[in-house]
Amino acid sequence: MLQQKTIQPEIDMITHQEDRLGGVFDAVKRDDTFPTAVHDALHQEDAVIEVNDFDLWYGAKRALYSVSLVVPRRKVTALIGPSGCGKSTLLRSVNRMNDLISTVRIKGDMVLNGDSIYDPGTDVIELRKRIGMVFQKPNPFPMSIRENVVYSLRIDGVRDRGVLEEVCEQSLRAVGLWDEVHDRLEDSALRLSGGQQQRLCIARAIAGEPEVMLLDEPCSALDPIATQRIEDLIHELQGRYSILMVTHNMQQASRASDYTAFMYLGRLVEFGPTEEIFLKPHLKETEDYVTGRFG
């Protein structure tokens, strides 16, 4: 098949270098699924999201291969893996942003706090209101800072000024932006710096009181100082919010997350406590990736 051909050289190269493998490359070669190595610690966790045997195709191209994972409640879960392995695809499947792409086809289901996400009876708009999302590039709306923060309340028709004020202040305080912008809430959000914009986007997600937050490489468009601030922020949010976060940065994953999932070419390879994944992973492939030997 077509996609097999395109990945062939890469696999050959790797197999020549290494011969103590857990079988991922084998599965890729056979265009088959791969059983995830799940660490025991995860079995004690309460799941906010459960992904069950989830497959996804962009047209004829398969992007996710029977992915199963649980996102633990009030913990930060990091998704790592080489570029193009399907991290964003998986993340965007959780709040069904992939519905916007007409060629996407899926199989399997996900569950958010007991409610099916892909059930035909699910209202996508109601679903998205329960999930907050922050994108790779800060995307503030063309309106004032205040209106940006309370956007999800506005679309729910909230008019009460007191409520709006309070939510606005709380959310901005939660992302440490209040002191910087409280005296210019009416200014256009587009005038903020990149790092401030990204924190504003996180505040916007928080204001909607989401049951889970999805962060897709929230720091990759920012300079090191702004990145540091966002990482500190994620650290602060730890324990209060359930967060699923894509990152390219190993340090970031090891510093800011409780659990780490390693993805490779559409398969979820290994999933466990961050410490274990980085220090004593079960699979050789994971070790190679986290120590920077490939990827």
Binding site: N95, M97, L100, I125, E126, L127, R128, K129, I131, G132, M133, F135, K137, N139, P140, F141, P142, M143, Y151, S152, R154, I155, D156, C201, R204, A205, G208
Partner: peptide, 26 residues
């Protein structure tokens, strides 16, 4: 920008809300 629309949808806005609050002002 497509990213603005995506942001709006991710907040749970309907298509018309996105048009009215994001697309048209912009």
């Amino acid at each position: 920008p497509h990213s603005m629309r995506e942001g709006s949808y991710a907040c749970g806005a309907s298509k018309w809300q996105t048009i009215r609050k994001i697309v048209l002002p912009r």
